[in-house]
Design a protein around this nucleic acid. Structure first.
Lengths: 129, 129
DNA sequence: CGTATATACCTTGTGACACAAGGTATAGTG
DNA sequence: CACTATACCTTGTGTCACAAGGTATATACG
């Protein structure tokens, strides 16, 4: 009884951090998903899960897609002919392609910053002995 | 006149994203900063700025340090002898060292997921021509 | 014709979080 | 005794991912 452990306080620092990290990568992952070919909402979810194990739910992706559309980095188009239900296909715009390029540059820089910290910590660790 | 452009709505998707990405890395950066040697609050801020250009303010770091202390991944100790003002030194705990190791593993996996998406997008891009 | 299931998109409410701004305290300087 | 520097901490705000719930259409079954 009440062995719930759903207190939401003992989630642990690691899980909390994982969520934060995913937040940072989601926009990038979604832009990459629609950069080579148009995809619709649920398709993006399936694609990310299958190719990277990133689990994204509908409540997460639709607000993000709406924001990206509003910002003009992706373009949306309804297509009704190809399936029993109409689908809203998203693809990268010209603006979006530039944004994606800058994001990838930043991603690289950010990686290097973390790597630098790792090296500094690891190196110093050894030197303390 | 009024070429301000401080509307705070036209911040652009890129800046927004950069903040999100930094959020994801902050905990990791701070843990790395205190992993090899104890450091106090302002010292961590200076260290991160000097070694990685990561700008962190006091309003950001103290709540994070408090949270990490509460979670037991860092330990805090007041030292009053070494400077005109007492300083609160933080260092990684045993628990913290394990957490940091897991974080680094996750960081590696996350990198690979993004890289995988980049490869998939880049490869398909070439093939469309 | 109703009921069920599957696909697809969207919205609302909630909790977490970084950060700007402001606050406290001590110690040295002129 | 004001002024500046160092150091730590707290409050208020806006943003955001996500769980839960909602709408609409099409096919299948009896």
């Amino acid at each position: 009884m009440s062995k719930d452990s759903e207190t939401s306080e003992s989630t642990g620092p690691l899980e909390r951090w994982r969520e934060q990290l995913r937040r940072g990568g989601l926009d990038l992952a979604i832009l990459l998903a629609v950069s080579s070919t148009p995809r619709y909402g649920l398709e993006i979810i399936r694609y990310l899960q299958e190719s990277t194990d990133l689990v994204v739910t509908e409540g997460t992706i639709y607000p993000i897609l709406a924001r990206l559309t509003k910002n003009g980095v992706v373009q949306a188009e309804w297509i009704a002919d190809e399936a029993p239900h109409p689908r809203k296909y998203y693809q990268l715009s010209e603006l979006g392609r530039g944004t994606l390029t800058e994001m990838l540059e930043h991603w690289e820089q950010f990686r290097q910053k973390i790597d630098h910290l790792v090296d500094a910590a690891g190196g110093a660790d050894d030197e303390t002995r």
